[in-house]
Amino acid sequence: MWERLGCSGVDPSVLSKSLSGQRLLTSTQLDILCKSLRLSKTEKHKLNENLKKDILDRYDLKYVDEDSGSSQNVALLELGLKSAKDFMKKGQPKYTLGYIDSLVDIIANTKKSCGQRNIERIDTISAELYVEYMDCMYSVVSEKEIFNRSKYPLRVIRGVGEKYKNEKLINSYYSLLASTYYIGKNPGKTIPCVYKHMDVDKIDDFQKMTALRAALISSGQIGRGDLVKHNYQTLIDLSKDWSDSYKVNVYDGVARSLFDTGDYKKANFYLEQLILALSTMDPADAYYITRKIQVFRTEMMFALKMRGLRTKNYMLKRCEELIQLCQIGGYDRIYKYARRYANEI
């Protein structure tokens, strides 16, 4: 089984410990186990639901049951939204997607039976869930699939934002659309999403960081060194009062954009700033695992291009840890890059 999973050096006792309840399987391991045992879709779904509940219990998060009475569901959905946000922050994007899927089913049933006064709140919860959903997909879904998978969530976010004149949701729509374009290898469309449709002076720090970072990386991807040079310092200046987690994200975007435009000296400088920013983060920080994966991936990108930047042994160890982190959290898209990097070392 472990050979099919692509793991090496996995202790054979891992499976027995998982089956005895001493530890939990990862999402990837469970998928392989189901295939190996040739379980039916119903059996696989049941195992996934139980694993989802177990992981939520581990993090003391709320599981929203579809059988809850409609009178309780609005309050439960509020808790569910918070749980989804917390779950993603703890580095579990793949399971967060499944959790949100279950909440969306409940929303459809709740809207049929709730009073009119709750409709706006339920619609808003739905849109906010899809904001989290999009954030998760960027770590899980491949570049080829991201556009098709994003269409419906983005349509919901924009529709609810426009219907209720919710500027935060409208800005989230354009920020997420910008990220979708650059992840989907269509960076030329990212920049107008940010600078034409968003007023970056009026959005919150998270949206500002996400949007400006996407625009900066996209500028590098299309070879617009002039835009990178003009905008990267602005993003760094903005980040001075932001959290360590935000700073990691900013330095990552700056380093990658400079790298893509061939300014390797500055790119390497900001790579070191990126690693330093990660080292100052508390490992208990909500986004620590996500940021660690981000840093390791960027470091491998640079090291493979600039041979001699890191030793082979260092790179192999980094790649091995990156692969493990991706498997644990279900970062499928990044996992594919990590496997490729390991083969190229």
Score class of each variant (00 low, 15 high):
residue 67 D to Q: 08
residue 120 E to I: 09
residue 76 L to H: 13
residue 110 T to E: 05
residue 114 C to R: 14
residue 119 I to C: 02
residue 85 K to G: 09
residue 148 N to A: 13
residue 118 N to A: 13
residue 97 L to E: 04
residue 137 M to C: 15
residue 77 L to V: 03
residue 142 S to V: 09
residue 121 R to P: 02
residue 107 I to E: 05
residue 101 D to T: 02
residue 106 I to P: 06
residue 45 H to D: 14
residue 113 S to R: 12
residue 42 T to E: 15
residue 74 V to D: 05
residue 133 Y to I: 01
residue 140 V to H: 10
residue 61 L to M: 14
residue 130 Y to V: 00
residue 107 I to D: 07
residue 81 L to D: 03
residue 105 D to R: 09
residue 42 T to R: 10
residue 107 I to Q: 06
residue 93 P to E: 04
residue 94 K to M: 06
residue 106 I to Y: 04
residue 70 S to F: 13
residue 92 Q to R: 12
residue 143 E to D: 15
residue 102 S to C: 03
residue 124 T to C: 02
residue 99 Y to V: 05
residue 145 E to W: 04
residue 108 A to R: 06
residue 112 K to M: 12
residue 137 M to P: 01
residue 120 E to A: 15
residue 134 M to Y: 01
residue 62 K to Q: 05
residue 79 L to G: 09
residue 129 L to S: 10
residue 79 L to M: 11
residue 114 C to D: 11
residue 89 K to E: 10
residue 109 N to K: 11
residue 92 Q to C: 03
residue 54 D to T: 00
residue 80 G to C: 05
residue 124 T to N: 04
residue 45 H to L: 09
residue 120 E to R: 15
residue 145 E to N: 15
residue 142 S to C: 05
residue 137 M to L: 13
residue 116 Q to E: 10
residue 119 I to H: 07
residue 124 T to I: 09
residue 117 R to I: 07
residue 83 S to H: 07
residue 79 L to A: 11
